[in-house]
Design a protein around this nucleic acid. Structure first.
Length: 357
DNA sequence: AACACGGCCAACCGCCTGAAT
DNA sequence: CATTCAGGCGGTTGGCCGTGT
C-alpha cells in the first residue's frame, strides 16, 4: 500500500489565509493547544489541511514571533550560523528567538546571499569566490570610462608587488588600530581578503621572476619585465611598518585615518595601481592603453586550457573546477575580482573620501 | 496613466525522518 | 522487519507591491 497524502485535497482551501481563518485557528489553539495537525482543521472548523494550519501557525500566528526588519546583530548571527550549519534553516531559527526558519530562509535568499556575492564571498562556502570571473559582468562593466573595455578583473593580470603592499597595509591597519577589529560583515570580508593576499604572497615567495612572467596572458607581450617592480625581500610584509612606506602612502597611516576612509583609500590605490600595471603588461614598450587591448583575444586565450602557464597545469595538487581552473589561477582570479568589485562599488556609490594629512 | 519589471515573502510542494503499528 | 503516516524540513512558486519607463 502506497503512502497516502497528508490530507484530502478535495474541498480544501489553498492560498492566502483570511482574517476569519486566522481567528479560528488562533482561538482553537489557545483553547486546545496545538498538535495532531491532521485532525486540527476539522475540529477548528477550517477547510484547510493540517499542514497548511501548522505552517500558518508556526510562521505567522505564533504569539512569540518577532516582526519587523532583521537587526544588524541578527544578520550577523545568521551569517555566522550559516557558515557552520549551512542551509539548516530550522537549526538557525532555533538560535534566533522570534524568527522562523521560513523568514530566515527568505531573508537569506533576498538580502544576505546577494550581499555576500557583491562582496566577492561565496554564500555557500563563506570563502572568497573561487569561480571564474563572470564574463558578462566584465564585458558590461565600465570602471574607468565606457570607451575602456574593462579588463580590470581579468586574471592573472594582478601586480604581484601590489598584492604584497596591500597585504602589508592590511596588516598594519589591523595591528595599529584596535577599532579595526570589530564584529561586522565588512570585517569578515577584509579578513578573507587579507588571507587571500597572504596566501598569494606565500606563493609568490616560491616563484621566481620567470614564473611571474609566465603568469601573464600569452597575448600580452611582456618584453620588458622590469616595468614590474619585484622584490624578493618580504620582511616588510611580515613586520609591517607604515613609517617606512613611501611618502605617497602616508594617507594609509591607520593612526590618522578612519576605517572607512582607509578602506576607500586602499581600494582606490589598488584600482589605480593595477590599472597602470595592466597598461604595462599590455605593452610596456609602446604607449598602448587598455582601450587598445584586444579584449576578445585575451579572453579566448584565458579560456583555453593550453594557454595556462605550464607550472599551473602541472600542479598535481590543484583541483580543477569547470575543467580548466587551478587553485593558483582561481586565487589570482579572486584577488583581481575583489579589487575590481570594491573599486566599482566605490565608483557606484561615489563614496570615496580623500584623507589629507 | 499604463505598462513592465524586479524584489519580497507567504504559502505550497515534495521529500525525509522517526515513531507507531 | 515492513509498512504507515504525522510532523518537519528545504526548495520553489506565485501574487502583491513599489519603482522605473
Amino acid at each position: 500500500m502506497g503512502r497516502s497524502p497528508c490530507c484530502e485535497k478535495n474541498g480544501l482551501k489553498k492560498g492566502p489565509w483570511t482574517a476569519e481563518e486566522d481567528q479560528k485557528l488562533v482561538e482553537y489553539i489557545q483553547k486546545n493547544g496545538y498538535g495532531n495537525w491532521r485532525t486540527l482543521p476539522k475540529n477548528a472548523g477550517l477547510q484547510r489541511c493540517g499542514k497548511s494550519c501548522r505552517l500558518r501557525w508556526t510562521n505567522y500566528l505564533r504569539p512569540d514571533i518577532k516582526r519587523g526588519r532583521f537587526s544588524f546583530e541578527e544578520e550577523e548571527t545568521i551569517i555566522q550560523l550559516h557558515s557552520v550549519l549551512g542551509n539548516k534553516w530550522s537549526a538557525i531559527a532555533a538560535r534566533l528567538p522570534g524568527r522562523t526558519d521560513n523568514e530566515i530562509k527568505n531573508y537569506w535568499n533576498t538580502h544576505i546571499r546577494k550581499k555576500l556575492l557583491r562582496m566577492g564571498i561565496d554564500p555557500v562556502t563563506h570563502s572568497p569566490r573561487l569561480d571564474l570571473l563572470d564574463i558578462s559582468s566584465i564585458l558590461s562593466s565600465s570602471i574607468y570610462s565606457p570607451s575602456h573595455t574593462n579588463m580590470f578583473g581579468l586574471q592573472p593580470v594582478v601586480n604581484p608587488e601590489l598584492l604584497r603592499l596591500a597585504a602589508s597595509l592590511l596588516s598594519s591597519q589591523r595591528n595599529q588600530n584596535p577599532n579595526f577589529v570589530h564584529q561586522n560583515v565588512q570585517e569578515n570580508h577584509f579578513r578573507n581578503s587579507h588571507q587571500v593576499l597572504e596566501n598569494h604572497i606565500v606563493q609568490l615567495q616560491n616563484q621566481d621572476h620567470q614564473t611571474l612572467i609566465q603568469e601573464t596572458p600569452s597575448c600580452a607581450p611582456l618584453s620588458n619585465p622590469t616595468c614590474v617592480p619585484y622584490s624578493s625581500d618580504n620582511s616588510q610584509l611580515m613586520e609591517p611598518n607604515v613609517d617606512q612606506l613611501p611618502s605617497s602612502f602616508s594617507h594609509f597611516n591607520p593612526q590618522n585615518c578612519q576605517l572607512n576612509d582607509w578602506q576607500n583609500n586602499l581600494d582606490n590605490f589598488i584600482a589605480n595601481e593595477n590599472y597602470v600595471y595592466q597598461q604595462h603588461i599590455i605593452d610596456p614598450q609602446s604607449n598602448l592603453t587598455s582601450s587598445d587591448f584586444d579584449f576578445n583575444s585575451h579572453l579566448s586565450n584565458l579560456s583555453t586550457p593550453s594557454s595556462s602557464p605550464a607550472h599551473l597545469n602541472s600542479n598535481s595538487n590543484s583541483t580543477n573546477i569547470n575543467g580548466s581552473s587551478t587553485e593558483d589561477e582561481r586565487e589570482i582570479s579572486y584577488c583581481s575580482n575583489l579589487f575590481k568589485h570594491e573599486y566599482q562599488e566605490i565608483m557606484d556609490s561615489n563614496a570615496f573620501i580623500s584623507c589629507n594629512f
